[in-house]
Each structure stands twice: as structure tokens, then as C-alpha cells.
Design a protein around this nucleic acid. Structure first.
Lengths: 251, 251
DNA sequence: GAATACTGACTGAATGTTCAGTCTAAAATT
DNA sequence: AATTTTAGACTGAACATTCAGTCAGTATTC
């Protein structure tokens, strides 16, 4: 996470540079994003960078301002308070992560492959720097969720979405004859807990749980319980296999 | 965690009150603890209280001072810096938790029961207020471990101890014919990850994962994989079944 | 009477937030 | 077409607060 943003001098119009729009589809919202929206996005990602570097608690608005090359006052101009900035940054990340996750999974043919992608997104480093599983980030988010009811709701909702997705995935796989018929509900709970736990271990650089082995451990468990064949295969890491749909990412 | 500590007026001698020592065994270290050590302990537990209430990042030395009824300066007098206080508080908690855990498990007859106690200690509320699984506390600790190498080492060591304990427990159970013969290593990793994950869910008040159901989910998994009989039984919560060895707790 | 425990008053640095005002580009007016 | 107006983006400098840590000195204990 070292997204250097070029200094944008005071009056420099970053607004419409119609050259960069390759596909007309989302060129609309790329352009429609006025300078204000761009700045917001800029600040949010900068905030995430700082959080992942210094930790949530030690993130100062001066840091995120400096990273973009603006004055701290401007940050407050956009987000009324520091708290709001950081809270929205979390929301931003969580949303981006979810929608990207769904996108990738939709692009895969079998339920087994989809589940694998899901696990990979949780445990393996990602090629997309915007989403790159910054595991420590999750720890910080959880701590926030523990005291900030807004963040708490956000996380509950997010968790629920993911679990439902697992459930429907398992169901689909069962109907397609890929999976054993087990109750998907407790399974989804166990999986999400297991993933969180492994995230903790990875984030804390556990000597016996690196990303790859965690991934394999988890996949082995899943394959065992859903009754399909699975072997470590090539994917090792860098799950960009399905990525590059042509756009930079939904900022 | 709402351990109200009575205000100790300035010169009040808390030092030796030989009345309270029932068993001569550890009366020694109870008395040997001079006023200084008592104060230290007092501050450490007070710090833990504050951390669990306000969160690690928002814990001020004034808070812990106020809780004991002393001046903030005294806290610095004992611990050179705030950071030291908090770091030692973590160590204190982790140590107390571990030794109490081992004590309880040693008091149990079968490996199955021991494992159950282990899981309970992780997931169920505890009768001992000193150890009461303050799940949020763990989240805060993890976040600290992510940036503070001292805490990181502490947590690694602690994790290793626990995993080894699981391994030896499984081995013992296997030799006693209680358990199936599976490889205890990946098992211990999976269990510890699962427990951490469930801790996250519980700490964040997940709508579908309360302590009891998490406990049962986990136990069911373990019983399945180690091949022993297990049913929800009575213990529901409040795992003080083995507690009350006669002393207040190892402060 | 010397060491230890302890405090109140203070300071200095860090940092979130405010505010008055500048600059720019587009809209409105002439 | 030349102008004035308006609104939004942006900043520097000050403000206000919070808090860890210092210090000089007082009480307490042995």
C-alpha cells in the first residue's frame, strides 16, 4: 500500500480529461465525478493507506492531507470530522471489497472455483492494490466496530452478506451435484469464523500460519466437507486470474 | 469488567493484613508482595478495566489513576511510560489467563473434558472477573501486536504454548484411546484459528454467533474430528466448575 | 533520618478544528 | 464581447484542548 498520488496544485483542473475514457460505459460516472468527488475518493484511499501504515489510532488528518499534497483544513472541509473521514474510509473499503468479490465470483464457472476465489480473497495477497488484503486493516476495523455502532452495523451487514453468499453458493453447488448435501448454515458460520481466525494469524505474522498454508488448510477443510476434489494447484497466490475487466477499480 | 476498587487514601497501609491468608502455601507471596507490588498489581488490573471499557487507544493514564484513587503522577512513578503500563497490562492478563487455564485443565480427568474446558475458557463468559473473557480485549491486543514487536512476541509465544497444549492433549487422548488418530498439528492450528475467529464474532456481538452457540459449534467440530461423544450438557456457561481453589486469583 | 510512596501544579508538544480570506472557473449581466 | 457576480475549492494561521510526563516538595514508614 504505497499509492503515491501526484501533487495537485491549487487551481489545477483535474476535472475533465476526456482522453482516458476507453469504454463509454462507465465513462459517464468517471466524468460525472466532479472535482469534489475525485477529492473525496482521493482522501478515502489516502486514509486507508495511512491507516494500514500507522494503524487506525495513530492516523492523523495531517498524514492523509500530506499524502495528497493538500492542507489539513481541506480534509475537514470535505469530511466534517476526522472520525467521519475514517469511518467512511472503512465503508469505502468494505464496499469495494464486496463488490469486487462478487464480480470475480460471478466470472467463475463452478461453485467450487467460486468458493476457492472467495477463500483466496480472504487469505491470499491480491494483485489489485486497492483491495490488497491488508490483513491488519481488518483488525483495526474490528476494533472500531467494537466501539462505534456505525462501524458495527456496517460489519454486521457485511458479514451477513458474505455468509448468505456462501450459503447460496453451497446450495448451488449441491443442486449442481458438485457438493455433498450438508446444512449450509452452520457451515457458513464456521467458514466465516475460520477465515477471520486465519486472518488474525496472518495479520500477526504467525510463524506457522502464512497466507499460502492458511489458504490450503482452509480449502482442504472445505473440500473435505463439501465433498469435492481439491489440490493446491497452481494459483499459489496473486489471484488476479479473473481480474482486469478493463477498468482501474471502483473508486 | 467493573471492578470497583475502593479508594485507598494516601497513606493507608494495604501492606500486611495477615488475616486473609487461609492456606499457608501461597500466603508467602501474598504477604511478600510489598505495598509496591500491590500497587503495581492494582494499576495493571485497573488498566485492563479501562482498556476494556474505553478501548486501548483511548485509555489515559488519568483514567487508571482515577479508578484507584491516586494521582496520575504515581502511575508514571511505577511505570516509566504509559506504553509500558499498557504493555505490561497485556502481559499480565495473558499470563494470568494461561496459568489459570492450565490449572483448570490439570484438575480435570479426561482429555475430552480438558479440551472442553479449553474451548469454554475461550468462548464462554467466566465466573472469575479477573479472567472474564473480555473478548474485545483480545481484539485490542491483536491490534497492538500488529505494531508493537514486544506485544507481537508475547502473543506468538502465547499462541505457541496453547497450540502445543492442544497437541499434547490430543496425543494424550489418543494414547488413552479416547480420540481418533489424526495428525494433531494441523488440528491444533485449525482449532486455534477457529477460536480466534469465533472470538471476533462474539466480541462484535454477531447476531448469529453468541457465546453459547459458538461453544457448541466448536465442540461439535472437535468431537466429530477427534471421534468422541459430546452433547451440549449442562455447563451452558459460567465454567467455574473447576474454579475456587481457595484463592482470589494470581494477581 | 533516610528511603520510599505519593501529590499538585505545571509544561510542552501534538493535533483536531475554526476562520477569514484567496483564487479560479463558470454564470449572469451589461 | 467585456464585465461583474457567484459559488466552490482551497489555504495559512491561529485556537483550543487534551494529555503524557516533569518536578519540587510533602507525607509515611522503617
Amino acid at each position: 500500500m504505497r499509492r503515491q498520488v501526484e501533487h495537485v496544485p491549487v487551481g489545477a483542473t483535474v476535472t475533465r480529461e476526456p482522453g482516458a475514457s476507453a469504454d463509454a460505459a462507465d465513462a459517464a460516472d468517471a466524468v460525472a465525478a466532479g472535482i469534489a468527488d475525485q477529492r473525496r475518493g482521493q482522501m478515502l484511499t489516502a486514509a486507508l493507506d495511512v491507516i494500514s501504515e500507522r494503524g487506525f489510532a495513530d492516523t492523523r488528518i495531517a498524514d492523509v492531507a500530506e499524502r495528497i499534497g493538500i492542507s489539513p483544513a481541506l480534509v475537514i472541509y470535505y469530511f466534517k470530522t476526522k472520525d467521519q473521514l475514517l469511518t467512511e474510509a472503512i465503508r469505502h473499503y468494505e464496499d469495494a471489497w464486496y463488490s469486487e468479490g462478487k464480480r470475480r465470483m460471478d466470472a467463475l464457472p463452478t461453485s467450487a472455483r467460486r468458493i476457492e476465489e472467495f477463500v483466496a480473497m480472504n487469505l491470499l495477497p491480491d494483485s489489485d492494490p486497492e483491495l490488497d488484503s491488508n490483513w491488519q486493516l481488518w483488525l483495526d476495523f474490528w476494533v472500531q466496530a467494537a466501539r462505534n455502532s456505525d462501524v458495527a452495523m456496517l460489519r454486521r451487514k457485511s458479514d451477513e452478506r458474505w455468509r448468505e453468499l456462501i450459503v447460496s453458493l453451497v446450495r448451488a453447488g449441491q443442486e449442481a451435484g458438485e457438493f455433498t448435501s450438508i446444512d449450509p448454515h452452520p457451515f457458513s458460520i464456521l467458514i466465516s469464523a475460520l477465515l477471520d481466525g486465519l486472518t488474525v494469524q496472518i495479520a500477526l505474522d504467525d510463524p506457522v500460519v502464512d497466507p499460502v498454508s492458511a489458504f490450503e488448510l482452509c480449502m482442504r477443510y472445505i473440500a473435505d466437507h463439501l465433498g469435492f476434489e481439491w489440490a493446491p494447484s497452481g494459483r499459489a497466490h496473486g489471484n488476479a486470474a479473473v481480474t482486469h475487466a478493463g477498468r482501474p477499480s471502483p473508486t
